[in-house]
Design a protein around this nucleic acid. Sequence first.
DNA 1: TTAAGTTGTAACTATTTTGATTACATGTAT
DNA 2: ATACATGTAATCAAAATAGTTACAACTTAA
Lengths: 144, 144
Amino acid sequence: MSISSRFSVGIHILALININKESTTTSEFLASSVNTNPAVIRKIMGMLKKAGLIEVRPGIAGSKLTKELAEITLFDVYKAVNVVQENDLFSIHDNPNPLCIVGKNVQNTIEPIFTAAQVAMEKVLISVTLEDVVKDIEAKENIS
Amino acid sequence: MSISSRFSVGIHILALININKESTTTSEFLASSVNTNPAVIRKIMGMLKKAGLIEVRPGIAGSKLTKELAEITLFDVYKAVNVVQENDLFSIHDNPNPLCIVGKNVQNTIEPIFTAAQVAMEKVLISVTLEDVVKDIEAKENIS
DNA sequence: TTAAGTTGTAACTATTTTGATTACATGTAT
DNA sequence: ATACATGTAATCAAAATAGTTACAACTTAA
């Protein structure tokens, strides 16, 4: 099972809003770039808005970032689009048998390990900003 | 979305086979400790067997580990039970529009970042052995 | 003030995965 | 031969994903 593509779509949306900042970036325009439905885009934009990453207003076409690219990390996007809950990257089977030494203690033994693994992953996301992403997109474009 | 509990159940199974090594550990016994169905246990045991972590034979009750506890990492279990595919912890939306600078390049830009995040998580799993887990389970048991 | 265009959101759908369950063939040992 | 285990397939309900349609609410401009 994979983490929802809402995350990569969220990154795509934010990068494109920035790159396209001289024009108005509507959900329809974004949808044609992402290759999905405008309603899907609007739903994700609603999450990005709720997280304070973008400004969008009913009836008004377009949207813009509320912060500088360098001030938005991929972790911010990841949290915004709600793809992995706090301390819930790994699920642990519940109600193991408390009469068994293993059943009684596995959960408490495993949980901190799973948390550490999740945190290590999230730290990588914290270390990358949208500025890094956009610069890399532009660099790749110039090469090709 | 969370990573399947097959992983935590796999750890539970291996730990219990070891702790119970003086007796025979049947799928029914394991099922009662994990609190699930024996067929579920057998399916996961089949994966652990295929990965070379345990010995089980048709018709013969019980199973044992093929290696020392200290030689089995949680990463081995994680790979065995097939909960996350290689380079596929995060899914990326496909067929973005190649006529858009972002659509054309996001995938290639994002992929290495996602891979790095996944690897960071997996490194934590590599660093923990079943011996660590079993010792912690026993320590918790002695305290309580 | 009406018309056109956009966002916000709900409802519905197909697909996929999970985890549980039942059933039974296959294999082993007494 | 009987009893018991494992191996495995088929089936099911529940949950999440991603797409689609539809429409209300809002804004702007003619």
